[in-house]
Amino acid sequence: MTALKAHEVARYLARPDLSEGIFLAYGPDGGLVRETAQRLIRHLSGDDPGAANITVFDGPELVADPSLLVLEARSVSLFGGKRIIRVRNAGKALVMPLTELRDDPGGAAIVLEADNLPPRDALRALVEAAKLGRALPCYPDTDETLAALMRDTFNQAGIRTDADVIPTLRDILGNDREVTRRELEKLVLYAAAGKALTREDVLLLCADNGALAIDAILDATGGGHAEKLEQALNRALAASVNPQQLLAMLTGHFANLRRWRTEVDGGRTPRAVLDGLRPKPHFSRINALEQQLRLWSDAALATASERLLQATSDSRRRPALAETVLRRTTLALCMLAATH
């Protein structure tokens, strides 16, 4: 009986111990399931992948006639080469034909892809119990495995990365392996000439422009950076972010600044205040937030909050002018910060 643990799969794919039999990639991460099957097929194809005889079925296709799987496994390749059968969306309908092939696959490698399967699932149990069977669980990446994948990808491509590239990518991406691979391929292609990646590159290429621009709007307004503010506003609005939503987030941001400023006025340093926050702001914003706490007094923050409340009221009364109100208000606050 061979039931691999999820953390053992990557090592197994580097050196599979079988060249024939039944291989089952299963789990909730559909992207990782597909990638696992693809990597295994590449290895099984040998030194000449083009010579491999690969047949692909979809699970529902075999439900109507499961015997097709047995016929394909028993058939002789007309052109030689490794016989590989790939079955996507595999399910319990395959248990009977696979039982026939379990002990004698006839030299064929049968690679199954399935959703998450409980331990008592008939298909999973059959493969795990088979002498010529290997079950490969595919569960979502953890922060550690995701970071390792990113480092390995960039190292193999000879790309240097700034220290904040991988943490930023972890924050942006989910844990679907297929999505992660696609974004990493895009970054590798982008950095192919210069062989270097910065956080700004990652944000430009991988982040949702609207969501990403919000932090930039908050910090440009609070920090007095008019040019950055215009760029961030353009990006957010182009991504269809609602101007009233941005005004609400700005109101919350300045309310936070005022609350934190009270602690600074009580004798704590801006950095100590920020370090004590839970949840802690992303490290990439710490310097900008510290600068804002030094720029703004409590009285000035109170004025800013009043302006934002008035702007919010104006935008609700006249929704057609919400963008104009947003731009006018943020620029005024930006200029106020710059004069401190």
Rank of each mutant, 00 (worst) to 15 (best):
D162E: 13
S297Y: 07
L69E: 06
T330V: 08
Q244I: 12
G210R: 00
Q310V: 12
L112I: 01
E72H: 04
S315C: 03
A338W: 02
L62F: 10
A129F: 01
A130T: 15
A73D: 05
G224H: 11
G50L: 15
L32Y: 15
K131H: 13
A93W: 05
A157W: 14
G266V: 10
G107I: 01
G158W: 13
I41R: 14
D104A: 13
L301F: 05
R34F: 02
N175I: 07
N116E: 15
D104F: 04
A114C: 03
D219G: 10
C138T: 10
H7C: 03
L331K: 09
R74H: 03
K228C: 10
T2V: 15
V165C: 05
L94G: 01
L112A: 01
D164T: 11
G174K: 06
A213F: 06
N116Y: 14
R86P: 08
N116V: 07
A73N: 07
I172H: 08
I22A: 02
P270L: 09
E290L: 03
T269L: 13
E183D: 09
L94K: 07
L32D: 09
L149M: 15
R271N: 11
K5H: 11
N175D: 15
I159W: 04
G222V: 08
T145P: 00
A299M: 14
K186H: 09
D143Y: 10
L94V: 01
A25F: 11
E8L: 14
L197V: 06
V33K: 11
H43Y: 10
M150D: 01
I110T: 03
N234H: 13
R182V: 02
R316H: 05
A196I: 05
P97C: 03
V202H: 07
D121M: 02
L277W: 04
R278I: 09
G46S: 05
D143W: 02
T221R: 11
G133H: 06
A239D: 09
L169I: 02
L218D: 05
A122C: 01
A52T: 08
P97K: 04
E290W: 08
L187P: 09
K5I: 06
T2C: 07
R271P: 12
G267N: 14
D104H: 09
V9C: 13
L204V: 00
V56S: 11
L250H: 04
